[in-house]
Write a protein that binds this DNA or RNA. Structure first.
Lengths: 203, 203
DNA sequence: TTTACTCGTTTATTATATTTAACACTTAGA
DNA sequence: TCTAAGTGTTAAATATAATAAACGAGTAAA
């Protein structure tokens, strides 16, 4: 018994130190994450549907949240458990994005969902765009540096580039120099879905 | 104020539905893991330095363990939190190989449809790609200058970038530096359709 | 100054996770 | 047959996480 107890402790120690994400600071990570998203403890708590106190306590490492709780909290950011703990192994670049992780750029009748969060220093911007029926990019034509291209996935999509205008359907695509004034519009009755790419990022 | 409250609710809804690792069964995962290592609940409990009851309760999803507890338990396997949750995104589906399928980049199993004809002098390359079931980009990893990104439209698409691997579904996306060795594969049973962009064009 | 907000933190209470100790069942061996 | 040790599960006791409500500080506007 004494031996067993001792070996338990030893094993514990080995495992505890060897495998566990030893100096993993859960509280600090949550705090950084929250601040990165410009959320106050109360804002995050509200979005996550939990009390604000628990955010404070977790960030101070004064409680070890249940995974259910942690999941709820992360849901308010939003971030998955996987990604939360994945940050641990190495500060590696984020490569994969679940569809709900694409950063929403504009809501309303037009939805721009960008792959990647911060594109400063990046050369490429790729977006998944949705246009409600009748939605368009406005009266003034768009103009910016770079090149732009896209593929229509769904719907009837009117693309105007300079003096050319064309209605594109699923599978159709466009490619133009972004310095030429351009405009997009959903002229169909169903939602338009289109994947576009830009270089360099235009916003 | 009213606006803020409303948008919060909306966000909450989006987050709640969108991000949660919905069908993630923590108990079942722990049980599988334990059985895979031929450990009884009591053995694992002893190695982890916790009571055997808690293993039983966790495996039945009758408690939501604190992350501290889960970490201790995993320490008895041993496995890190990172890996535990990383299993979530790992290919749980069968990866199937047909031995007679040798990789042919051109035409056959993989169809690259490029937007635009001649990209010399252009900065951006955008492709609509189709992968037949089982198709991949070959044994040797791809490497080239530039950045690369894509959005999956249809199918189950396995993307490997450096040492990271992930299975992406419709709406999911990726973004990485093309100098990191990478590879693509359709591991599903239906055709994969994906829109990708590259800067500068890689071929 | 006052008022009215925000912020992060803390306290007392409630809810729940975790432990200890038992239960019912199976297997192996004397 | 009877033990003795194994399995996973459960009940009651205890430790701890989570809540609601308050605190003190900071900021901005009247």
């Amino acid at each position: 018994m004494a031996d067993a107890a001792e070996s338990e402790k030893i094993l514990n120690k080995i495992n505890g130190e060897g495998v566990s994400d030893d100096d993993f600071d859960l509280g600090q990570r949550l705090r950084s994450l929250r601040e990165l998203h410009n959320l106050s403890q109360r804002q995050l708590a509200k979005r996550a549907g939990v009390s604000n106190a628990v955010i404070s306590l977790i960030e101070q490492n004064r409680t070890s949240p249940s995974v259910g709780m942690l999941k709820k909290v992360l849901g308010g950011i939003p971030m998955s458990m996987t990604d939360f703990f994945a940050l641990d192994v190495a500060p590696r670049e984020k490569v994969f994005f679940r569809s709900d992780e694409l950063t929403e750029i504009a809501g309303g009748k037009i939805s721009f969902r960008q792959v990647g969060r911060d594109l400063t220093g990046k050369a490429l911007q790729i977006l998944r765009e949705r246009y409600q029926p009748g939605a368009d990019t406005g009266d003034t034509m768009l103009r910016h540096e770079g090149e732009e291209s896209g593929v229509v996935i769904r719907g009837r999509f009117e693309v105007t580039v300079g003096e050319q205008r064309r209605v594109l359907g699923p599978g159709d695509a466009f490619y133009f120099d972004s310095r030429i004034p351009h405009r997009f519009r959903n002229i169909g009755e169903e939602e338009v879905e289109v994947v576009t790419a830009c270089t360099p990022p235009s916003f």
